[in-house]
Structure formats: C-alpha cells, structure tokens
Design a binder for these strands. Structure first.
Lengths: 231, 231
DNA sequence: CCAGAATGCGAGTGACCGCTCGCGTTTGTC
DNA sequence: GACAAACGCGAGCGGTCACTCGCATTCTGG
C-alpha cells in the first residue's frame, strides 16, 4: 500500500485522532498515472537496491533510474525508508504466498521429506532469482528498523511453518528443540542459496542438489532412520 | 559513484614509480607513540565497525572513540578504507593462525570427524565472540573492494583446508564435488554461527550442539556409514 | 640545548544526499 | 471552456561525512 506523503507541520503524529479520522485516507483522483509511477519507481528502487544496497542507494539515483525527477519521487513516497518498506512489503507478500503453497502439503503424512525439500528449495530459488532485491533488502546490515521488523515477522512465520513440518517426526522432542531444528534448516537453506546464486549453469544445478542433500541428511535422522558404520 | 577524491598529493597512487621506490616506506622516527596510537585507533575502529558497520561508521566517530582528533587519525591512515583494510588484515591473520591449529591435526587418519568438528566449531565461535568486528567487516554488503578480495583469499584458503580434510573420506569423488562439499560445510558453519551469536547462556550451548550435529550429519555419510530406515 | 621530525589538534572545505518548494503541466469534472 | 486537484520538474537547502591545512606540542639525534 503506497503511503500518502505526509506534509510536516500542521498535523503532526498521533494525538489528533478525530482530525486524522477524517483525512487519514484521502482518495486520489488521478490514480491511473500515479499507480503506474509507483510501480515504476518501485521497480527502479529494486534495481538500485539490489546493486548497491539500501543505504548506498540514493533517492536521486532511484528517480533517475525511473526516469523521473527527485520531486516526483517524493510525490508518492514521504521518504527513502517508505520506498524500501513498500517494496519490502510487496516482496514479502509474494514470498508468503510462495511458501504457503509449498510448505503446506494437503496431507503431511503422505508427503515424503524429499518431496517437501525439493519443492521448497526449487520454489525459493526461483523467487530469489526473480527478485534479487529481496536478498539485498532482507540481509543488509543497514536496513531501517521497520523493514527489519517486517522481515522478522516473515522469518518467524517461516520458521513456524517449518516447525509444523518437522514436529510430527519428533513427537517426543521439546518445543525449543524443534524450534532450533527449524531455524537450523532455514539457516542451511540460506547458506546454500548464497552458493547457488554465486554459480551458473551446470555448477548451479550441482549446488542445488548439494543443498537438497544437506537438508535431507540433516533431517533424515528425525524420520526414524538410523545410521550404522559399515567400514 | 562516490569516487575517492584524488588529491594532487606528492606521494599518492601509482605513476611515479621511481620516486615511489625511494620514498615508498619511510621509517618513522617516533614509532613508540605512533604504534600505540595505531593500535588504539584500530581498537576504536573495531568497536565502531562492529556496532554500526563499515559505511555507517564515520571517521570522526572512530577518532572520538579513540579519544583523538580527526587530524590525528589521518596522520596514520590515508583514508577510511585503509583503516578497515589494516584491521581486516590483522584479524584475518589471527583467524588464519586459528584454523591452522585446528584444521591440521597431526595424524588425520587417527582423528575422528567428531573431534575435528567439535574443535573447529569451538575455536571459531570463540574467535568470533572475541572479535565481533570480524563478522561486521567480512559480511557487510558495503565493504570496500580491497577487503572483499582479502576475505575471498581467506575464504578460499579455509575451503581448501576443509577440502583436504574431507577428501580422504571420498577418494572416488571428483574434485569439484569435494569443493562443493567443503563450501557447504563453511556455509552451514556460518549459518550456525549466526544462530549461536544471537543467543546466550544455555540456549547458545544448545545451538552450538545443534551446529555440530548438523555438520556431523552432513559429513557422516561420507565416512562410509549408511542409513537404514527403522520405523 | 636546539633543529627538525613526528605527533596532535580542530575548524574548515568540498562533495554528496535526503528532501523541499515554487511553479508549470496534465487530466478529470461540471 | 473553466476550475481544481493530481502530476511533474529541478534548482537548491540544510546537514553529514571524508578528508585537509595551518599551527602548536612533544620527542630525539647530534
């Protein structure tokens, strides 16, 4: 949702609840052109963020990339942070949809670990390849606090989802242990993703396979399999 | 692009090779005080870098942290990047010593996988706890190119060391596969390290154990062990 | 003890960046 | 066509940052 540019001065922050209620969502008349500009600016921001990171990206550069003036940019976004927040929100929304599809099999008991891992890995890799800005925004050390919060929320949801997938395999394990396992899974995935994105072609495929193997080997002992030394 | 302003200085950059040869390393007379200031500035830089990251850290803040003036800082470092490079070099040198000790057992055949993993993980965790700036410098997306190069070199050495540890277990595997395994190990370690550093006390210990487990489960199949389903 | 180098200072400089402001242009509504 | 609101522009403002410069202070060899 695009933020309304809030002019500083007359009505600051919370407090005037009554006044805010009346003017909080003024409908825009020229929505078509504006909405187009917003997505255009967001695409430009994604391009700049993914190449330079958040802090190093200048709003002038984003405007230039979008082919508009700095003033136009600030017609639609109150400040630089709002651009990142809006972009992050859209990406996270799409991301959430992605893993809602992939990590929620119809019948958990009838789906093998291999299938879930393969599906999830493939889906997330495709997503990150399509939206390189996602990685830049989520893993930059300099992101504004608001994005970090939203990303934490997303991350928490993701971990929770993995927990529900893992939990049935270890009915006796205490909750914290399940959480640790889920977090470790996400961590391994992220590590593998970095390796995957750093390579191309056949080598990339090999790393994808390696990541799936790693996750499988990490989780398989939970399924009741046991290992024996056969020297 | 924020290019470094090129001063028409007497001894900057390349070009005057002959003159550089004569004046390239003028020995300082007052080394005692200067050397002390340098380490003092480096410690201050480590503190600031680890809390704010490289780009967000201002040279004035580093000077203030060290209790000196900005001018004094520039008496010993030509620019901000040089501070990070020197600090990075020292940290990487110590890091290199660490894993030279830990990843080079006297008799590789007589050392079990468990021992190597436990030793390496404990050592690296201790190092990262002692030098929080290391993580900030090595994993920031905004670090200057020079540091990235040095870090790449360190990383490559580390991967090579892991390769030599892994290789004996898989004599038939092609070299690229061994490299992938080694890189994956390092990736898993880094993912686990982040989880570990994010927790404290008993929870941290649990994550340390979890990381060791993850590495063990990832590598054990290479040792000749095989898994069977026992439902 | 003294010339001179090393060290120390901190206000200042130029460049850049986020953001604003005044004003002109387009577009929907009557 | 007239009006107003949304859109668009780009020079410029205030602020920060990396870095400098002239000058004062401390040390050391001779």
């Amino acid at each position: 949702m695009p933020e309304k540019p809030e002019k500083a001065g007359t009505e600051t922050t919370a407090g005037t609840e009554t006044a805010a209620a009346t003017a909080e969502e003024r409908p825009r008349r020229r929505q078509a052109r504006g909405e187009r500009r917003i997505t255009q600016l967001l695409e430009a921001a994604a391009a700049v963020f993914s190449t330079t990171g958040y802090t190093a990206a200048s709003t002038n550069a984003i405007a230039r990339e979008a082919g508009v003036s700095p003033g136009t940019l600030y017609q639609f976004f109150p400040n630089k942070e709002a651009i990142a927040i809006e972009l992050g929100s859209r990406l996270m929304h799409e991301m959430r949809q992605s893993y809602d599809e992939v990590l929620t099999p119809a019948d958990p008991a009838a789906t093998s670990l291999e299938e879930v891992i393969t599906g999830a890995v493939d889906r997330f890799i495709e997503f990150n390849g399509r939206h390189p800005a996602f990685f830049a925004l989520m893993h930059g050390p300099d992101i504004p606090g608001r994005i970090a919060e939203e990303h934490d929320a997303l991350h928490t949801t993701l971990v929770a989802r993995v927990e529900t997938l893992v939990a049935p395999f270890v009915p006796d394990a205490p909750a914290p242990a399940v959480t640790r396992t889920a977090r470790m899974c996400v961590g391994i995935y992220k590590a593998g993703l970095e390796l995957i994105l750093a390579h191309e072609g056949a080598e990339r495929e090999a790393y994808i396979q390696e990541l799936k193997e790693a996750l499988l080997r990490y989780l398989r002992p939970l399924t009741g399999a046991s290992c024996v030394d056969t020297p």
